[in-house]
């Protein structure tokens, strides 16, 4: 094997984006969606997650470490490309640019979001519940920021799912790649709806 580890790192980057980060994102949006039923339903669902065994271990193994690797290496990947949308305005080139832009937006959003919730809990003992989110999202600016962050994160995941299937050689033919585009669009619509519905429920 050659000394070059880049192939390995890129494949790890691709894998981590789906497993576990993508799975975590879906789980997170599902738990949030309980907020549309009632504040109590959300608090109950959130407390169930909080009381999972070995929680701190789960958080590090399934969220923090994969997310840091994927995020930091992702910024490096984004910075090594040169946009050429003006000359090549094809659909996939748009997706290529949006994947990188949404990745950067998501990283900024997630850093802020983790600081405001999980780190605030760890440092100041802030209680994480429906009221905390309701308070954060009562500011129109923060509501807009969260909408942008959630849409960017879901887009990055859905479109990333498409490139995941190409990167691992699951979808080879143009036809299978087109079908996967439709599947990823479905994922984008469903989870964007769930995310936005939760945000509206928190804010109202």
């Amino acid at each position: 094997m050659s000394e070059n580890r880049e192939f390995f790192y890129r494949r790890i980057h691709s894998l981590l984006g789906v497993i576990p980060i993508g799975l975590f994102l879906m789980q997170h949006l599902v738990v949030n969606h309980f907020a549309t039923y009632s504040p109590e339903a959300f608090n109950q669902a959130a407390h169930f997650m909080e009381n999972l065994p070995l929680r701190i271990f789960l958080e590090f193994a399934l969220i923090y470490i994969p997310l840091l690797f994927h995020g930091i290496y992702g910024v490096y990947i984004a910075l090594t490309s040169e946009m050429n949308l003006k000359r090549y305005g094809y659909f996939r080139n748009w997706m290529f640019i949006l994947q990188r832009a949404s990745g950067i937006i998501t990283l900024i959003f997630v850093v802020w979001h983790v600081w405001e919730t999980r780190l605030a809990h760890a440092i100041y003992g802030t209680e994480i519940n429906f009221d905390l989110m309701a308070q954060i999202l009562s500011s129109p600016f923060m509501f807009g920021f969260y909408v942008l962050g959630v849409v960017a994160a879901v887009f990055h995941f859905a479109n990333g799912l498409w490139s995941f299937t190409v990167t691992w050689g699951l979808t080879v033919t143009p036809k299978s790649q087109r079908v996967m585009t439709i599947v990823s669009l479905g994922v984008f619509i469903i989870f964007t709806y769930m995310g936005l519905a939760s945000l509206i429920a928190f804010a109202s």
Partner: peptide
């Protein structure tokens, strides 16, 4: 500089 650097822009 291999395969892994493809970003699937499909241009």
């Amino acid at each position: 500089g291999g395969l892994q650097q493809c970003g699937n822009s499909q241009n």
